[in-house]
């Protein structure tokens, strides 16, 4: 399976949902739908804020402990960027259906102890954000995410952006980071053995991918940063250009 290097997204793939998006990057394809704010069931109702409900459906079979864990991680991150306080007693439902993953890693999962599936987390995160934007759910900020692995090859350390499942198996440690559009760290999950120094390196790499400044606003320091090749796609520019084409299509009559 060939992994795509540039992320791709389409909007409005599910016409009945309030908002939907299909996102594919690094071999993963995820379709997400967002409905809300809608009436929450009694047990999910919060008196002062909206309940964000994330459902992750794997490419094959039923979701298990792994999916529940992914959901809880995504739920706490997304509740930070959605303006939940504006919609008390309501529900914002996000369903993420994995359509394609680079390797059929749902084989033999029953035998393995539940652990995070790091490769897919940035794709799920990005799909959720795009679907939320498509639904017009009021948000505090947008978010971009990426996965970084640290490999040890011939005694030298190497960071690897968007690792494949095979790379994750070989990697010493794997990290998933997401940043809001205000350059704040939104999500940081790590697995494996690593030092604080290594984590700092991962942080800088992920920050370079997620928080690259906009081309028209580049001056001085930003220019210098731009010169170093961080590798990997510029996620913020991707988000902006996809939204630009979506808004232009929606407002074609202007």
């Amino acid at each position: 399976m060939t992994a795509t290097t540039t992320p791709e997204a389409t909007f409005g793939v599910l016409p009945r949902a309030d908002g939907s998006a299909r996102y594919s990057h690094a071999g993963y394809t995820v379709t997400g739908s967002v409905n809300g704010p809608i009436e929450a069931q009694r047990r999910e109702e919060h008196a002062y804020e909206a309940h964000v409900d994330v459902v992750v459906r794997p490419a094959a079979g039923h979701g298990g402990t792994r999916e529940r864990h992914l959901e809880s991680v995504l739920q706490s991150s997304l509740a930070q960027i959605i303006l939940v306080k504006s919609f008390p007693r309501s529900l914002i439902q996000i369903v993420l259906q994995v359509e394609n993953s680079p390797e059929n890693d749902y084989v033999n999962t029953k035998l393995v102890q539940a652990s995070l599936n790091f490769g897919i987390m940035p794709a799920l995160m990005q799909t959720a954000v795009l679907a939320l934007l498509s639904a017009g759910v009021p948000m505090r900020a947008t978010a971009t995410g990426t996965a970084v692995a640290i490999m040890h090859q011939d005694g030298a350390k190497q960071t690897m952006v968007d690792p494949s499942p095979r790379d994750i198996e070989k990697a010493r440690s794997v990290h998933v980071l997401a940043f809001t559009s205000q350059d704040e760290l939104l999500l940081a999950e790590s697995e494996g053995d690593f030092t604080v120094k290594e984590w700092d390196l991962v942080y800088e790499t992920a920050r370079g991918i997620c928080c690259r400044s906009r081309p028209q606003a580049k001056e001085g320091m930003a220019m210098l940063l731009d010169d170093e090749s961080t590798g990997g796609p510029d996620m913020r520019q991707f988000l902006r250009s996809t939204m630009e084409s979506k808004v232009a299509a929606d407002l074609h009559w202007k």
Partner: peptide, 13 residues
């Protein structure tokens, strides 16, 4: 997209 009607994303200044 014209300059007097710029695209904005949530949270942008």
């Amino acid at each position: 997209m014209s300059n007097d009607r710029p695209l904005v994303l949530p949270g942008e200044t």
